[in-house]
Design a protein around this nucleic acid. Sequence first.
DNA 1: CTGTTAGCGCGTTCAT
DNA 2: ATGAACGCGCTAACAG
Lengths: 340, 340
Amino acid sequence: MATIKDVAKKAGVSISVVSKTYNNYVDVSEETRQRIFAVAKELNYSPNIVAKNLSSKKQMTFGLISSGVLNDNEKDNNAFDIFKGVYREISESRFELSIYLIDSQKQKQQSYVQYCRERNIGGAILQGIRTDDQYYTELINTDIPCVVLDIMNETANGMIGSVSIDNAEASKEMALHLLKRNHRRLVIMTGTKETYVNKERMKGLEEALHVYGMKLSDVDVLDADFSEEMAYSLTKEYLETKQPTAFLCFSDLMAFGVMRAVKEAGFKIPEDVSVTGFDDLVFSGFTQPPLTTVKQDFVEIGKVAAQLLQDIKEKKLERQHIWVKHRLMERESVKTLPRN
Amino acid sequence: MATIKDVAKKAGVSISVVSKTYNNYVDVSEETRQRIFAVAKELNYSPNIVAKNLSSKKQMTFGLISSGVLNDNEKDNNAFDIFKGVYREISESRFELSIYLIDSQKQKQQSYVQYCRERNIGGAILQGIRTDDQYYTELINTDIPCVVLDIMNETANGMIGSVSIDNAEASKEMALHLLKRNHRRLVIMTGTKETYVNKERMKGLEEALHVYGMKLSDVDVLDADFSEEMAYSLTKEYLETKQPTAFLCFSDLMAFGVMRAVKEAGFKIPEDVSVTGFDDLVFSGFTQPPLTTVKQDFVEIGKVAAQLLQDIKEKKLERQHIWVKHRLMERESVKTLPRN
DNA sequence: CTGTTAGCGCGTTCAT
DNA sequence: ATGAACGCGCTAACAG
């Protein structure tokens, strides 16, 4: 492959002139500029990014540190959609994208900071990372700009941004959706308690209940840790003694488990029991019946995260947290009950 | 971040000794070796991959050039699974992985060769690339080792490997599966004619027909270009005049389209019409009825491709093409007909 | 406008 | 067993 040296020699100039024309310096005569590009084309030259990266102390690559892409449930394509959004955005910028996928099964993972340092990564997007992850803490305490997803950063570090939908609001809307349709005997299938999203969704739920003069203690809360299987067995057990009118689930995956258990218990959805989800996975439009849920636009979330990271990197940061809009997808898993 | 220089200074040695200990040279005394690692740990040092890449003329990164990840049908996660397999394998090796996703919508894409050169990429895995892609031809004619998926390389270039299931055999098995169950009025829903996989599947089909004393002209062939929608409309139209006993589809996506059209035409699957697919998408286990299809293990394909690429790179290549085994997934979309 | 020089962080001879 | 010196391909002052 042709190097900058080859181009310089053939064009009869020094390498610095070549470098300058490629980096849009103004002090290169239009004539030599043209000549250099002509020679470059002839030699099939294009600058080596690796060398460029090392030489200019500028950092030109961003990292996407993501858990959940590798070992997620096969029906769960969220992490993948985020990846798509990030990739699209970054590929249209002048940055490179490096991917670091965490396999939560495997213990031996590398420090995120080390990962970034080794690759001269100038900023990272974190997805599916738990706040109690030691490497997470290590990373956000460095000067490496970060954008975190589904975590509200409590850190004072100005280089941290975050992106998510308004989980509390979305959850409130969904609860209201059920309440408005006269559902009162509700079961809430929640996810991992400690997570930011779960806390937010609980908050929204409480607000909705409050509107109807109810409290959290007026509904049953089952903790299924965002797991389809756990939701399935909890529901199965629950239905042996009680019969609620609706299950409000904090994820579609859990809703799938609930639906399965409800059907196996001999109930019809939504005639006997209503079910709602959260996320809007591809699957959710094809369940029987199609699932009413909150749509999160993960591709958009990824895209926005990548934009925010660039903004932070270029110091033109305006806000710390960006809300991506969600949407209530009304399908056929919810029945309107007669007013009692 | 600490550099090799810092470590050298603190350990009281020259940088070359540090470099050597990190690169497993034998001529470093065990004592200084230990000391260097101790200092490195203290300084939180780890070698800069970018610099390493530039300095050693060895190429340490592989590229995954993939079409279909970005703009594929949302139900189609094949490209993603391949990505997973490749990532897993590469991340356990000493190589880095660079991703290059092709958006077939956008015209302005960069030459694959240029992509590789700029990043000092030492080998590439190509997926979802068409053989009539000009950049494809350009790339495989260089000395850059490549592994192509679902393409049988016709090139003489020894640096090219390929991985796929045995499409002909799989197709034959599926056709036999139908024939054995006394289906004779068959409709074959084929994909893009020019593709390698389609040709192979046709070949297998013909072999199966031959076993039963039939020829290709004894069945109806509909070309749906691997598109769900096209399969849908072709089926719809077809069913207005004819009534076959089974549709053999060259992809699950097309099978979905067929199933929809069949149902809309008032037929039951599999009671009135049987349908089979190819790929085994996540969705296929959840259609009504669950789809009988050929499972391709895409994660495995990705993994094998990455292994093969490493082998080629390290010159210990044994074979050019590796077959990954497929599996016939017998579910509920095929009925056994009474013998006629 | 153009060229010279000095690195970036590291690997690799070649002496010692 | 260790170190000095050179270079990978490029950017970035600084001179001219």
